[in-house]
């Protein structure tokens, strides 16, 4: 990590279908620690692929990618990295339907050696942060779309990550709930100094970020 950059990407390439589809075609990005960046671009531009690369959900074919000091091209098992450094927020909240709101927030904490009581305490604290402590025992199906996405934010914060990766976090919400979720994310970034990288195709949402990166045909537009 150089010059306070938490994400360093150089000439990153990723192809699908034996290279016929070039999702990323030589991407170069640097993101500073504590920065709020939005990645925009049309569908199929490669923005979600880029987010998955930063979050180590997928591996690149070529290039360099270092996130929070970890060379993602070298490591094979990146689950530890994802657990400790990354917090994901998906467009569809992806909460586990048979578990309570509290249990959903606990999920990422398994494997960290915490006691059950400690995990519950921490999850409750996070639910308080997203103002859902009174709904801790409810099932996700009993919550509104906005509330579910706030639970997803709490879950993303479970292991105190350095980077929050949000893939269209307001994409399935109405404007009121979308605004509420964005405010929570912005507050999180400002108060906790968390690096926030958000993929969106909504220009109004993107405008909330300190910097916007536009991706088109697998390349960053300058």
């Amino acid at each position: 990590m150089n010059n306070g950059n938490i994400v360093e990407i150089t000439n990153l390439k990723k192809g699908y279908d034996k290279g016929k589809i070039k999702a990323l075609n030589g991407i170069d990005i640097q993101i500073r620690k504590g920065e709020f960046v939005s990645i925009i671009g049309p569908s199929g531009s490669g923005k979600s692929t880029l987010l998955n690369m930063i979050g180590a959900l997928d591996t690149a074919d070529d290039g360099l990618i270092t996130v929070a000091g970890n060379d993602l091209m070298l490591k094979k098992d990146l689950s530890d990295f994802r657990s400790k450094k990354i917090g994901f927020i998906f467009q569809l909240h992806n909460l586990i339907p048979n578990l309570s709101v509290l249990e959903n927030v606990i999920i990422p904490m398994y494997g960290n050696g915490y006691k059950s009581s400690h995990m519950s305490k921490r999850a409750m604290k996070l639910l308080k942060y997203v103002k859902l402590e009174d709904k801790a025992e409810r099932k996700p199906t009993e919550l509104s779309g906005g509330e579910r996405q706030r639970v997803a934010i709490a879950r993303a914060l479970a292991n105190n990550p350095s980077i929050i990766l949000a893939d269209e976090p307001t994409g399935s919400l109405d404007s009121k709930n979308g605004k509420m979720v964005l405010e929570r994310l912005k507050e999180l970034h400002e108060k906790e100094n968390v690096t926030l990288i958000m993929v969106t195709h909504d220009m109004n949402v993107a405008a909330m970020a300190e910097r916007t990166i536009e991706v088109l045909d697998g390349q960053v537009q300058t």
């Binding site: 979050g55 959900l57 098992d77 689950s79 530890d80 990295f81 994802r82 657990s83 400790k84 990354i86 994901f88 998906f90 992806n94 586990i96 999920i107 990422p108 398994y110 494997g111 879950r155 479970a158 292991n159």
Partner: peptide
């Protein structure tokens, strides 16, 4: 997929 994303090992 969510479990993998939040850092669960295989």
């Amino acid at each position: 997929g969510v479990f993998r994303a939040v850092g669960w090992k295989s």
